[in-house]
Nucleic acid binder design. Structure first.
Lengths: 209, 209
DNA sequence: GCCGTTCTGGACGGTCGAGTCAAGAATGGG
DNA sequence: CCCATTCTTGACTCGACCGTCCAGAACGGC
């Protein structure tokens, strides 16, 4: 009853993401996206609204993917392997950064740095993403504590916040030019300093400075 | 023998920094800077070159300040207080982020995220800044190890990289919307998990995962 | 006080880029 | 087979912005 769309929406969003990822929000031109997708600007505006709305869409999808990746590594599984899951996740994040020879970094970090201050929608999306990652990490840390791989006296919330900070920090220092090899070792070091169960003295770590 | 400048260069750079800091590189207009500084564009271009050169200048000054702050906290002093100096520095960075209610973040992080991929000068400046911070931290960690506040079996290079990652990560998660209180506790947690000298079993932390 | 020199201000040019629009194309229903 | 509807295209508008340019102003030297 009407002319159907000639493009795959997911594919168009993917191409748009490449552009925003490479050049940032302000640095990307709608003409670039039109050329990259092969669409006319009219179709682009008709399907996604203006530049801001398109970016929101791309940014939101990216954040969702970030959480999905974390869920794939962290969610569920026996307590006995919780620490392994955490280690695998942290190392994956480091490896992603270390292998990013083009220094593209993470679109969430880039978009947040550029827009969070001015765009409440971006800020809100970033914040909920952080909360989701934090919750996933906290759950796994608690699991590792139950199994005795991490000091049960430590606060899982605090350790989760530390690991999240390390993961996001790895992205930041990687982009800032720290050597890939150093980036990789940071992940290992962070995992190595997680408090192990005390054999003698009862806890203490993670309650205060 | 010629008309002298009617403006203070440092003050102009300060105003320019405010603009770049608030809006990023692409998002800042030279007219904004002209208005913010009260200078005509002719003076601006005459004194600093084009927009790119002006940003380089501002970005470079900021990076220098970042290192200077770290030096003020970390450089020199007795080994006995090395760990205190490290703690003070890490907590200061966290406090800066936590108190940054306007979410302005760090210009180095913002500039690096936006431009490092495309602008070699920005990338290089960020990289040398990271190296300088890393060296400062490593020196202080080694001092703390000599005094017996940190496990001498740990690799100071690795611990320094971890702390640098935490410091930069704090900035990132703060910008992403993590609660200020959480940001503050991350600093404490990071300091709390630094490996203390072993009383019985000989080292092991920080060599491998 | 005149001159060369450097600084000042802002109008201007040229380009760029976001968003619009109108003419035409593809579809399914009647 | 015709029509209503939605999609497509890219030329177009119009505002924004970088960088220039020039007329004039503020100096020091002579």
């Amino acid at each position: 009853m009407a002319r159907p769309r000639s493009f795959d929406e997911r594919e168009v969003l993917e191409r748009a993401r490449e552009q925003f990822w490479a050049s940032g929000y302000a640095g990307t031109r709608m003409d670039d996206i039109a050329r990259a997708t092969g669409l006319g600007k009219g179709s682009l505006y008709g399907a996604f609204g203006d530049k801001g709305a398109l970016f929101q869409r791309v940014f939101g999808d990216w954040c969702a993917t970030v959480v999905e990746v974390a869920e794939r590594f962290l969610a569920g599984g026996p307590d006995a392997e919780a620490l392994d899951r955490i280690a695998a996740y942290v190392r994956l994040m480091a490896e992603n950064t270390a292998a990013d020879t083009e220094r593209r970094g993470c679109l969430m970090a880039k978009g947040t740095a550029e827009l969070a201050e001015q765009d409440p929608a971006v800020a809100a999306r970033a914040a909920t993403t952080m909360s989701a990652l934090l919750a996933l990490l906290r759950t796994e840390i608690a699991a590792a504590q139950r199994h005795g791989d991490i000091d049960p006296g430590a606060d899982p919330e605090r350790l989760a916040a530390l690991l999240l900070t390390v993961v996001r920090g790895i992205e930041a220092v990687g982009k800032a030019g720290l050597a890939p090899e150093t980036v990789r070792t940071v992940a290992d070091t962070a995992l190595a300093v997680l408090p192990r169960p005390a054999r003698r003295s009862p806890s203490s770590t993670g309650r205060d400075a």
